[in-house]
């Protein structure tokens, strides 16, 4: 797999440098210096990226608990993963739910707020800082705070809803509401994304709008024909990184489960509160973590890791060429 990804990525390797290859010794000297400068990073890539990837593939065909030598079991782990694991269906469904709902909702909200800031000429200073603020809150703290705010009994949200005559749901304690509750949290902390969009919106040449305006284009037409096409690379970037982030959704779900379930073992994050309420917040990476580092089924966890890698890699291969920021060609 890694061959495919790297090869696909390597398409960008520039031809000009090849033709220049053996021309002068300064080139060779420069290359030597560059490689020296890159040496730690290259070593890092080998130790923390290439080797673990290969080792994961190796482990995925074994039964391994770290205390005994890995024992080759063929496709057993994959068979269990695809046909037998009673928890995998919930984990995959929940993860996909976050990919399909959380990512677009966050992007839309971030775009709307950025658009509002750009329109209102409030792109810097007070408003931007205000809307960015939640993104600063450490994720664990924001989850704990939200579980409190949405606490069915005494939380402020349900108190306010009650005051206006609406019976609030159980939020983080109801399997049907727990994921939407995390989406609300995700929207609240969308500051990073908003700032990227804002920067992109401000780069849209002003004269384009003026010309369109003179041609009698309406506001909506301007957004459709000028704004969105110009910033679409940024949106594409956000979608790709957002989807990859959602595929590994872990901290928010784990902490929310632990805190809302009130289990004393929360610190483990993935103990008896795993996926609480019910299995509604059990995500793929939490299941992987539990299998690997609670049950110490390293072989099975590795099989899950390989599958996750394949999915991410396919996604990257399909999209990387379109996201120019990821391309390496020299300017």
């Amino acid at each position: 797999m890694s061959t495919a990804t790297l090869a696909a990525g390597a398409t960008a390797t520039a031809t000009p440098s090849a033709s220049r290859r053996q021309r002068t010794s300064p080139d060779a000297r420069r290359r030597r210096v560059a490689l020296v400068m890159l040496a730690p990073a290259l070593l890092g890539l080998a130790i923390f990226f290439v080797y673990p990837l290969i080792a994961s593939i190796f482990y995925s065909f074994t039964r391994y608990n770290q205390l005994q030598d890995p024992e080759f079991v063929g496709l057993l782990n994959y068979r269990y993963l695809f046909t037998q694991d009673p928890q995998i269906a919930a984990a995959v469904t929940n993860t996909l739910w976050f990919v399909v709902i959380l990512v677009p909702v966050r992007i839309v909200f971030a775009l709307l707020v950025a658009g509002l800031l750009a329109r209102a000429r409030a792109a810097s200073g007070f408003w931007r800082t205000l809307f960015y603020l939640p993104a600063l809150v450490p994720p664990v703290a924001s989850v704990v705070a939200f579980v409190f705010l949405f606490n069915p009994g005494t939380g402020p949200v349900n108190q306010i809803l009650r005051a206006v005559g609406i019976p609030g749901p159980l939020w983080f304690n109801d399997p049907n509401w727990s994921k939407p509750s995390l989406v609300i949290l995700g929207v609240w902390v969308m500051g990073d994304m908003m700032i990227i969009f804002l920067a992109a919106l401000l780069e849209v040449p002003r004269d384009l709008y003026e010309a369109a305006s003179l041609d009698g284009a309406s506001g909506i037409q301007q957004v459709r024909h000028i704004t969105l096409p110009t910033i679409s690379p940024v949106i594409g970037f956000s979608v790709v990184t957002g989807v990859i982030a959602a595929l590994q959704y872990f901290t928010e779900a784990a902490v929310a489960s632990g805190v809302a379930s009130g289990k004393a073992t929360v610190g483990g994050g993935t103990g008896s509160g795993l996926g609480y309420p019910g299995t509604s917040l059990l995500t793929y990476t939490q299941l992987l973590y539990t299998r690997g580092f609670t049950s110490f089924q390293f072989g099975y966890a590795s099989a899950m890791a390989v599958v996750l890698f394949v999915i991410t890699a396919v996604l990257l291969v399909l999209t990387m060429r379109r996201i120019s920021i990821f391309r390496a060609e020299e300017s």
């Binding site: 990525g9 890159l38 890539l45 973590y289």
Partner: peptide, 22 residues
């Protein structure tokens, strides 16, 4: 340079759980 850069991008985007066990 470009090959190295691409590898770095992939390493950056890859979920950390993929390499967690080894």
């Amino acid at each position: 340079a470009n090959l190295i850069f691409t590898a770095i991008i992939v390493a950056m985007l890859l979920p950390p759980q993929v390499t967690a066990v080894p």
